[in-house]
Computed example of a mutant assay.
Amino acid sequence: MRLVVAQCSARYTGRLSAHLPLARRLIVVKADGSVLLHSDGGSYKPLNWMSPPCATAVSEPDDAQRERGVSEVWAVQHRKSDDRLEIELHEVFHDSSHDLGVDPGLIKDGVEAHLQELLAAQIGLLGDGHTLVRREYMTAIGPVDILAKDPAGGSVAIEIKRRGDIDGVEQLTRYLELMNRDPHLAPVRGVFAAQEIKPQARVLATDRGIGCLLLDYDAMRGVDDVDSRLF
């Protein structure tokens, strides 16, 4: 992982257009190629980013950029779309690289872990004919909650959350991009499963061909008798 603290500006073009004016920010470049820009606020969310697969090219500024004080230009191009993130670095205050090794992934507890256990035992909630391959299927960037097979024998990767938001869809997207490079698994379809899925997350998942599944925790535990409901 490379960490760069710099006075910089950025422009994102492609499916949407966005601009970050000149300010001091943290730029994170991960081993998978992803590039993220953070401010000293806004919790854990980056101001802008490019998800893999992508490639970064570093170049010298042109005359106009040099006049504005630009010292280096990063062009981050997505390999499967026209999405492009261009970062203009003016002054670099810190630049370091660190080998973090292979992360074992998040060990889940509480409701989320129980939802995973319950869905693995009730894999038919995905639809008739689905079968469980395994829980916590390990990839190079972390474990997929559940790997299953659909009735036609296709692979299904399932990410489980208590509350499904955009970050969860992004996480599943990264898993799918990696897993679909494996000829033993591809093609891999994604399912985003949660007790509650935010509208923005559902729109993003649909746009990326990812299915959404609402999980009724009480019904799955056998606490809620759905047959006796009036509504």
Results as ranks from 00 to 15, higher is better:
96 S>K: 04
88 E>S: 09
70 V>D: 04
113 A>T: 08
68 R>I: 01
71 S>C: 14
99 D>L: 05
84 R>K: 11
91 E>T: 15
65 Q>Y: 04
77 Q>Y: 07
105 G>H: 08
113 A>G: 08
80 K>Q: 12
112 E>Y: 02
78 H>A: 15
91 E>W: 06
89 L>R: 01
77 Q>M: 13
107 I>P: 02
76 V>H: 02
69 G>A: 08
74 W>R: 11
60 E>L: 09
88 E>A: 09
66 R>A: 15
80 K>G: 10
87 I>A: 00
92 V>I: 14
87 I>D: 01
86 E>G: 00
91 E>A: 12
61 P>E: 08
96 S>H: 07
89 L>K: 01
58 V>L: 15
92 V>Y: 02
63 D>V: 12
78 H>M: 12
102 V>L: 00
110 G>R: 06
98 H>Q: 07
57 A>K: 14
71 S>P: 11
94 H>V: 09
90 H>S: 10
79 R>S: 12
65 Q>T: 09
80 K>N: 12
58 V>E: 14
109 D>A: 06
108 K>L: 12
56 T>Q: 11
64 A>R: 13
82 D>W: 02
107 I>H: 06
80 K>A: 11
61 P>C: 09
83 D>L: 01
99 D>I: 06
58 V>G: 05
62 D>I: 11
66 R>M: 12
82 D>L: 05
66 R>T: 13
85 L>A: 05
54 C>A: 13
60 E>K: 12
85 L>F: 04
110 G>N: 07
87 I>M: 04
58 V>S: 13
105 G>S: 10
88 E>P: 00
63 D>S: 09
85 L>E: 03
98 H>A: 05
94 H>P: 01
97 S>C: 12
68 R>A: 14
89 L>C: 02
105 G>Y: 04
69 G>I: 04
103 D>Y: 02
96 S>I: 05
87 I>V: 11
62 D>N: 15
78 H>F: 07
84 R>M: 09
82 D>M: 06
66 R>F: 10
86 E>W: 00
75 A>V: 14
111 V>M: 13
84 R>Q: 10
82 D>H: 06
77 Q>H: 14
93 F>I: 07
74 W>E: 11
84 R>L: 12
60 E>C: 03
107 I>C: 05
97 S>M: 09
73 V>G: 03
112 E>M: 05
58 V>Q: 13
73 V>E: 03
72 E>A: 10
72 E>P: 05
82 D>R: 06
86 E>A: 01
73 V>L: 01
71 S>N: 13
104 P>V: 00
102 V>E: 00
88 E>T: 02
88 E>R: 09
74 W>A: 09
81 S>L: 02
57 A>P: 10
109 D>F: 07
72 E>V: 09
106 L>D: 03
104 P>T: 00
55 A>N: 15
71 S>Q: 15
67 E>K: 14
74 W>Q: 06
106 L>Y: 06
71 S>A: 14
112 E>W: 02
98 H>C: 05
88 E>Q: 08
110 G>L: 07
54 C>H: 03
107 I>S: 10
67 E>D: 10
62 D>E: 11
86 E>F: 00
66 R>H: 11
97 S>D: 12
65 Q>A: 10
68 R>G: 05
60 E>Y: 08
111 V>A: 13
57 A>L: 14
112 E>C: 03
100 L>M: 08
